[in-house]
Design a protein around this nucleic acid. Structure first.
Lengths: 160, 160
DNA sequence: TATTGTTATACTCTATAACTATA
DNA sequence: TATAGTTATAGAGTATAACAATA
């Protein structure tokens, strides 16, 4: 057997590309979250759906879909799962009987608290090499880039 | 029609999560690169494979697969495509006839130059809201996180 | 006619495992 | 027996389009 200590790392060109590092890192973060969610018997979007419903008035499914960029037809099954586990409720909007208004249940709020802890722990491990200041810096930079690309990340302007 | 100016942005909780912003942003970066590559009639991994081969001595397919975290069986088709377009060459390693050594062709180097321009332009648009200092900061922070998670991002230590 | 939620279909990825030729 | 590359198969995931109820 030949000892091949050759190329053990990525080419300089890729390491030097912010876009490349960002995309790989983001994908890694996604995978790790999905993995931990699965271990906790939670669906891949449970956290974001519950977090959304926790902050807002009852939402129509189409609103949730648009906000989280999930296809409407796909969201149906995801909400079915959440509903079967008693974490959300669907009821018809009396003002427009085509709509289903979705709300979190008390049980859903408990689950959200659990998922928050999981996400916080992953994030802490993920950002381990950075101190508090650096984490804040990173977050600020990422958020500015995100806001520039996607209006959904815009800081809420007190409206109405 | 009712004017529903309600929730137009993501919940504060998700915007406040570095992990969430990073994962969405990284996925967005990935999609945009794939999209532009497709427009340029290039495969999704053409850039990374060519960049890798450009910096290194002829590589075995298994090395490429490990380095880019692509499954070996999946890499076959991707290399087939690159080879059919005359961008890379495969030849058997005389020292171990099981192996295929892969190299870039002159035509492949030209294509790499084209793809570099595309990636650079996407990156520039992507990081538009940041000035040069901030871009450098972001890159450094991301790279440190990446290096902590994945040895492939380690800075090359002059070896042999 | 347009829209909400839903279902069904087809298509693409991906992951796994089997196969060959070499070692 | 183990490994490099290849091929084949199955399962998951995704995108698209059709559908029923309501506006």
């Amino acid at each position: 057997m030949e000892v091949t200590t050759k190329t053990v790392c990525l080419p300089q060109e890729l390491r030097a590309s912010t876009l490349y590092v960002l995309s790989k890192l983001g994908y890694g973060a996604q995978l790790q979250m999905m993995d931990e969610f699965e271990k906790a018997a939670a669906g891949p979007v449970d956290y974001s759906v519950l977090a959304l419903l926790d902050e807002a008035v009852p939402e129509a499914q189409s609103t949730i879909a648009d906000l989280l960029k999930i296809d409407r037809s796909q969201l149906v099954g995801l909400l079915d799962s959440l509903e079967e586990r008693g974490l959300i409720e669907r009821r018809r909007d009396p003002k427009d009987r085509r709509r289903h208004l979705v709300t979190v249940t008390p049980s859903g709020k408990q689950q959200l608290a659990r998922l928050r802890k999981i996400v916080a722990q992953i994030e802490d491990e993920f950002l381990a090499p950075l101190d508090a200041d650096e984490r804040a810096q990173l977050h600020e930079l990422l958020l500015r880039v995100a806001q520039n690309r996607d209006a959904r990340f815009a800081t809420a302007t007190a409206d109405a």
